[in-house]
Design a protein around this nucleic acid. Structure first.
Lengths: 110, 110
DNA sequence: ACCGGTGTTCGCCAACCAGCGAACACTGCC
DNA sequence: GGCAGTGTTCGCTGGTTGGCGAACACCGGT
């Protein structure tokens, strides 16, 4: 596999990040990576076609949210660029993750 | 003017918020409101047509980010729903605003 | 060499989005 | 009443997005 290109930490754009995260499937990928980094693309349990998933990973990678390295076999190892994001946008990822936790963990009687 | 409808604080959706903020013009509106709340729609110094601006305000309002109340004359008074956002998504708005500050305040020689 | 597993890329399509102008609605003032 | 000012709504347009399947590329094992 060819190694993929990633934006430098200093080039991470806030609008690209917000746009990338404003999509449930991509958010799900990020949330999964928070709990367990170093996962191949196919192991996220998201019911979408391969091509669609690949596109989502591309959006996340080009936004600088994840890193995709060539892994064993023909797989990609996906990791969160948690430190890079925190350096560039302190507290952003944490706040977003906390927010989505609240949204997804639907409370019964509001 | 008819009063407009706003989502309840508890109904504010994280994806709607992220999508609304992932747009420079809308972000500019929010940033302006942080510094000075209670501004009418036309006073944001954004070079877009009335209809486009109106649409952006609608997106922000329906995401629960701003409140639009009927103001003097035929104007709308726009205010940030800062407390509602902080209650629902603690730290999110602050982190996003800090992030965009860093992005917009372009550093010369990186 | 072959085949299975993993991702990427390439059309293609339907839906959405941001932009605009024109028309309309409403308020306030003259 | 008439007019200026302020927003909203309604097409319309071009560009982007998210979805898919099919085809391709690549690595590993048999």
């Amino acid at each position: 596999m060819k190694p993929l290109q990633h934006p430098r930490a200093a080039d991470i754009n806030i609008y690209a990040v917000l746009h990338a995260l404003a999509e449930p499937a991509r958010m799900q990928i990020v949330r999964t990576l928070v709990e367990a980094g170093g996962k191949p693309c196919g192991s996220f349990g998201i019911d979408l076609s391969k091509s669609t998933l690949s596109a989502h990973f591309k959006v996340l990678r080009e936004a600088g949210i994840i890193r995709q390295e060539t892994g064993p076999g023909n797989s990609r190892v996906n990791t969160l660029r948690h430190e890079d994001l925190d350096t560039r946008f302190p507290g952003l990822l944490t706040a977003v993750l906390l927010a989505v936790e609240r949204t997804e963990t639907a409370l019964p009687s509001l």
